[in-house]
Computed example of a mutant assay.
Amino acid sequence: MTVRFHEYGGPEVLRLEDVAVGDPGPGELLIRVDAIGLNRAELSFRSGHYIEPVRRFPARLGAEAAGVVEATGADVTGFAPGDPVSVVPAFSMNDHGVYAERAIVPAAAVVPRPEGLDAVGGAAVWMPYLTAYGALVEVGGMRAGDTVVLTAASSGVGLAAIQTAHRVGAVPIATTRTRAKAGRLREAGAAEVIVTDEEDVTERVLDLTSGRGAEFVFDAVAGPGVLPLARALAPGGTLFVYGGLSGRETPFPPMEVMSARAMRAYVLFETTTDPRRLLRARAFLSSGLRSGAFTPTIDRTFPLDEIADAHRYLESGAQMGKVVVTVEH
């Protein structure tokens, strides 16, 4: 069974259909999918608001999963049937999709599943941690003593960024719109929590950093909110925008604010499609998992036949961590 949609729309357009999978081609693997990590990119792709449009209908979904190798295509090395693996987002959903019982994916987008990590965990770690690591450590060079401000901090990426900051000795400051999740964010490791409906973000960050400002802002929301975040940056600091949850146009901060500061977009593909960066990211994540520094936060799981409900739940924003879909065989 494979999840497809025949038109843009809400979760109701998702259909579970019998689709022939076929054999893997050169450079591809056939994966028995055991768990699927849901991401907001799939909501955007399904509704027609993604960074690329659907090229043809019916369309597939999904770029993050865990399972077992069932067959290898020509020219594939390093994998064999029976290997437990994870699929990382490193391809267009116009070309492949992992919302299925079985899926063909590029071998370059598959990594061995770290020992001791089950399928649900294996579907929940790669996108969040590779996003946080890729921007903050690989590109930004975050170091011990740096301060990083995290928006949408209760998301899977936000929670992974908190742990990533602790891993390198940086100080994570979480923002949240209301107090509903503030306590849980502190429990998750946030050094401080700013409630944006009640507090001035710029003033609070400057106060918490003794007037210096934050070396990094990691923003999933974008829109007009980038202006107070930019004003909270330290000289030489960087504001990474990696999402657009606000759905609003994002202004570039005034030049007097951005003098000696930087603002840039970050996409996960910068890490997952670069073999050397992916190798370093895998080593960073694997060592963190082994040491216990990284623990994936699973908010809730849904069976595959409840995929529409899983999308509705993710859209609600009620989750704290990752939403995962499990596949029975």
Rank of each mutant, 00 (worst) to 15 (best):
S316G: 12
T272K: 04
M127A: 13
D83L: 06
L227Q: 09
T175N: 03
A182Y: 05
F302L: 04
M255Y: 06
G10C: 02
D197M: 03
P89H: 05
G183Q: 11
R277A: 15
P84D: 07
V68D: 07
P228A: 14
V157C: 02
L29S: 07
P254E: 06
E198D: 14
V168W: 07
N39E: 07
E138S: 15
V325Q: 05
I31N: 05
V324I: 15
R177N: 06
L117R: 08
G134R: 06
R102N: 02
N39S: 13
V324P: 03
V327L: 10
G140W: 01
I104F: 04
G223R: 11
A124D: 08
A144I: 02
P128Y: 05
T271V: 15
A90F: 02
P84I: 06
G321K: 12
I307W: 00
H49M: 12
T196K: 12
R55F: 00
A161P: 07
V324N: 05
V139M: 12
H49F: 08
G225D: 10
V267A: 12
G244S: 12
P275V: 10
R186C: 05
F284I: 06
V33H: 05
F5G: 02
P253R: 13
F5T: 01
L130F: 15
L206V: 03
L229N: 03
P253N: 11
E306P: 00
G292H: 09
G317N: 06
R46G: 00
R204T: 15
R113T: 13
V193E: 10
R143D: 08
V201R: 11
G236L: 04
A293T: 14
A65L: 03
A80M: 02
F45V: 02
V68E: 15
G158L: 04
V88R: 04
G62M: 01
I162W: 07
F269R: 13
F252C: 00
L279A: 15
Y313N: 10
